[in-house]
Design a protein around this nucleic acid. Sequence first.
DNA 1: AAGGTTCGCAACCGCCTGGCC
DNA 2: CGGCCAGGCGGTTGCGAACCT
Length: 333
Amino acid sequence: MGGHQCCSKQQVKRGLWSPEEDEKLIKQITTHGHGSWSSVPKLAGLQRCGKSCRLRWINYLRPDLKKGSFSAQEERTIIDVHRILGNRWAQIAKHLPGRTDNEVKNFWNSSIKKKFIAQGLDPNTHNLLPSCKTKTKNNNNNNNACIFSHTHKKPVSVNSHGNQISINSDTSFLTTIPSDPFNVPQSMQHISTMSVCDQFQNPNMLWTAHQEQTSNALQETTQPSMSGSIPISSSPLNPLELVIINEGRCIWDRSFEPLRSTQDEILMQPKPEMGGGEVEIEKNINELCDGEKYMDASFESSNFDFGNFLESALVPCGMFYHLSPMDHPAWNC
DNA sequence: AAGGTTCGCAACCGCCTGGCC
DNA sequence: CGGCCAGGCGGTTGCGAACCT
């Protein structure tokens, strides 16, 4: 084993930390700070390597850590952000105050991942597993899935060729929408009391566009509020992979790349493999941002650093997004 | 009750990156 | 510019607890 420099120089203890060791480490860091981690063990009187001390402090002893199991909202946030960023646990953990990357990773591997698989979803891509796709292939060719998963209380408006849909919910949800959301599938038209807009407003509705679907079948797809199931799915065909996540942050996934950003809008372009076209994202800051300023994005269309963009540009409050998908065959309204 | 299995989580390992000399 | 080093990160392991037979 190669071993870290600070660990190879001396005989170090490994394995679980004793309460006495914890106490020494806490005392050292709370009184003197950690400074150089490699010097911490010596100063604290510990037979540990600096790296081990750092890990113990960050993952377990830090006073600002949140103890206890993950809440449903935290779980949703993890799923949302993971879908965008993949296994970048440290980045994901930044969206969960008091949680560590290790904790998020363990939770993902021990809990969420299994739920994905149980629901026939690939935990890496969040798409249906191939075996499940073939099941629905024959009865659903309008599988333009779109997740609007948001937990903040701000309204979101999706404008599609002049038709505006308001979405306002406080739970994350999965929506599998037909390619034309204003041309409701025949199987759904019996819901006379529910307008298209209402259906979009229902955060717990799982939309599917199976032509043969009966009323009862549709009912069954409606997720009970705050249920334990994971409301997730995705489709690479979706032209509007917009995800609103916790704390009013808004991110979109790697199926897009930015073209330009102005004071009032960000022009996003689905990548060629997504079918191209343009999606205009207009920002209306004054109306719904509670006075918070939007940190404008600064990027170039080439060599785009998505992670950096997330950190630098998408920190604002709950924003009002106005999406105008243009010339995209999958959103042909 | 005992042995085997599974599960969850703390900790380790190894690689990468960036700063410094 | 290259080597050294520390910090950071994601993948993996190992162990104790919980569960099952």
